[in-house]
């Protein structure tokens, strides 16, 4: 199953956990705020694991 990640940008506080865990999927802007590298869906289980790194619960998983 595939899923897309969605970042709730105002909620992101630049902890940096997601892009450290999945540097192939996410990157940071100059302030350390998470940026999705691509709009392509990824494996749903992996998407949930990435979302589960966010201390702010700011990453949403949308199954496609």
């Amino acid at each position: 199953m595939l899923a897309k990640l969605e970042i709730d940008i105002p909620m992101c506080q630049a902890h940096g956990r997601c892009y450290e865990t999945a540097p192939d999927v996410l990157d940071a802007d100059d302030n350390g705020v998470a940026v999705l590298k691509s709009d392509e869906p990824i494996d749903a289980e992996r998407a949930r694991a990435i979302a589960a790194t966010c201390p702010e619960f700011a990453i949403l998983v949308k199954e496609v």
């Binding site: 902890h15 940096g16 589960a52 790194t53 201390p55 702010e56």
Partner: peptide, 18 residues
């Protein structure tokens, strides 16, 4: 799941956490 609050959450997240 080890999403702890050691550095706080929200707008005041510890500036020096990294």
């Amino acid at each position: 799941d080890v999403r702890h609050l050691a550095f706080g959450v929200g707008p005041h997240r510890c500036l020096g956490s990294n």
